[in-house]
């Protein structure tokens, strides 16, 4: 197991250039043990480069990367024993069947003959592929191959799981299944770093999020920290009874930027970014009550991770 006193992963001022292209610039972050780190950013931002440095596939870089306190540049073989990796793009030799492939990778990861069958059956069950163990990999669908990728990295029960776009090519049910697997692993103390373009998945399972753009890490924190830190402005959704009058002159309140009528009994208030929520809410409630509105629901709507992400990387 990882040493409890230190972070599972540390990136310390990591930079990497491919020719004249700066893929990563001074990237620093830490991933606490047992957390799920969602790594997001547009195509070409440097996510896969970061991941390949972490798993030791890119060895020529500036800075320092530690896994459980061990430097990936010097302790590659040790680190590989505790690491599971799902690459974004990977091929399998066409002659392999699912079972043969898992047995080979299991042996290379140090599984003994006695535990091999059990583990292979377990991971196939976990990813939902128990019926295709004797099928050739070349005959699997894209989604099944993606699940097989996940199965191979779970085989040796790694303490650190690095997943590059694990949800890509999966249908909604399979994505749900992968999210459950990641959550279960996290509960067992496994540290997970995963990159994704599907921000709802990141928001759903990540305990920490890092946003990367043009090789620079723009922000790292819990989803809540990132969302509250970013002054996008908060919204309040108000629902009143169907036979209730609906208050329409919210613009009178100086703290409200605009009001949007979503339906005859639903209204969305866009608050000015700098306002203090705790002072605004009583004012709005007071106004609703004074105008005889029969309130049914009053929700503070925080900006979604997608909105925060777009604000960071899109510059709007």
């Amino acid at each position: 197991m990882f040493t409890l006193s230190q972070p599972a992963v540390v990136f310390n001022s990591v930079s990497k250039a491919f020719g004249s292209t700066q893929a990563l610039e001074n990237v620093s972050f830490e991933i606490p043990q047992g957390s799920v780190f969602g790594y997001i950013g547009p195509n070409g931002a440097g996510k896969t480069t970061t991941i390949k440095i972490l798993v030791g596939l890119i060895q020529d870089f500036d800075g320092e990367v530690l896994v459980d306190g061990q430097n990936v540049s010097n302790e590659r073989l040790n680190i590989h024993r505790m690491l599971g990796y799902l690459p974004q793009e990977v091929g399998f030799q066409e002659w392999r069947t699912v079972r043969q492939m898992l047995i080979t990778f299991g042996r290379l990861s140090g599984l003994s003959h006695s535990e091999m069958d059990t583990r292979v059956n377990e991971v196939l069950e976990t990813v939902g592929l128990p019926d295709v163990e004797n099928r050739k990999i070349a005959h699997l669908s894209g989604g099944m191959k993606q699940k097989l990728h996940l199965a191979q990295c779970l085989l040796h029960q790694p303490e650190l799981l690095v997943l590059d776009e694990p949800m890509s090519g999966l249908d909604p049910a399979s994505r749900h299944q992968v999210r459950l697997i990641i959550r279960n692993l996290c509960q067992k103390g496994v540290t997970v770093l995963f990159s994704s373009h599907i921000l709802s998945d990141v928001q759903d399972i990540a305990t920490q999020v890092g946003i990367l753009n043009n090789g620079q890490l723009l922000v790292v924190g819990t989803p809540d920290q990132i969302q509250s830190h970013f002054q996008l402005g908060n919204d309040i959704e108000i629902v009143v009874a169907e036979d209730s009058p609906i208050c329409k002159n919210f613009a009178e309140l100086p703290t409200i930027e605009s009001a949007e009528e979503l339906s005859f009994n639903r209204i969305l208030l866009h608050l000015k970014p700098e306002v203090d929520i705790d002072r605004v809410i009583p004012n709005i409630l007071e106004k609703l009550i004074s105008e005889g509105c029969k309130l049914r629901s009053f929700n503070l709507v925080r900006p979604s991770l997608e909105e925060v992400y777009l604000k960071y990387v899109g510059g709007f």
Binding site: L57, L77, Y85, P87, E89, V90, G91, L108, Q152
Partner: peptide, 16 residues
């Protein structure tokens, strides 16, 4: 072919 298809990636992230 193996290099183009990134076949070696899964080997090289193990003690190989």
């Amino acid at each position: 072919s193996d290099m183009n298809n990134h076949v070696y990636d899964l080997f090289l992230i193990r003690p190989v």
